[in-house]
Amino acid sequence: MPGKRSRKEEMMRVAQYPIDWLEERSGLVGGLKYFLFRKVPRDSGWWHTLGSATLTAFLVQLGTGVILAMYYKPDPNGAYESVQHITNDVTLGWLVRGMHRWGASVFIILMFFHMARVFLFGAYKYPRELNWIVGALLLPTALLEGFSGYLLPYDQTAYWATVVGININGTAPFLGPFLASFLRSGSEIGGDTLARFYSLHMLLLPGAIIGLITLHLYLVVRLGVSSPPWSKEAAGRERDETPAPRGAGLVTPAPRGAARRPADG
């Protein structure tokens, strides 16, 4: 059936054409393949998915947050009512608000799990120190997202929790009073405080998180995924199983597989 085959090939060619067109002019397809189809250690497993899970949780926050912003009014006299409106009146508003509200906790919890995995696997070690530092900047940025978002429903809990939170910042020595004043937008909590927190919550901090995640992922792609500690391989090579000499590393680091010192007999 040469006719049938050539028709199939023709179809494939037609389907392939726009992809080739894009690739030839931008290299984006190759870039995406390079990003997605990377080599990972053969014994990486479920523990290595916590980072992607955190990223997914953040994307959920991003998506639901954009939609919530379409209905929310950052005005001291209308904020509470607009949140009630979202929850009770808008179609599926209860669901989207719930996703954003609970997803915030999921995001932070997953981030801590991811951090624990990296710490316990020793994946923060050379050459990935910088990625640990970027992650260590991501964590407080995400916590600030939680703090600024907590005020937005503008109920009694939100208001007093923010009063306490801002005043905790105010007790920091020397610049604390100014930091608190900056967060309050003046000496008292007022309408500007809510608008300020809203702006921080949906513009500044998400932008910072997106930038830091981009850097984080760039380093992951560049440096590759680390093997788990029980792996028989290290960076694609056989692991050196020679036991380290006794006492090594206590005062001065001994090179791996170094001969035992004469003093050890």
Partner: peptide
């Protein structure tokens, strides 16, 4: 001074400046 900030005693040196209120 803001809540939690010492106004007297040794700890007042931690809050030498206050933003205008």
């Amino acid at each position: 001074a803001g809540p939690g900030q010492h106004v007297d005693g040794f700890e007042q040196v931690l809050y030498p400046l206050q933003p205008p209120s």
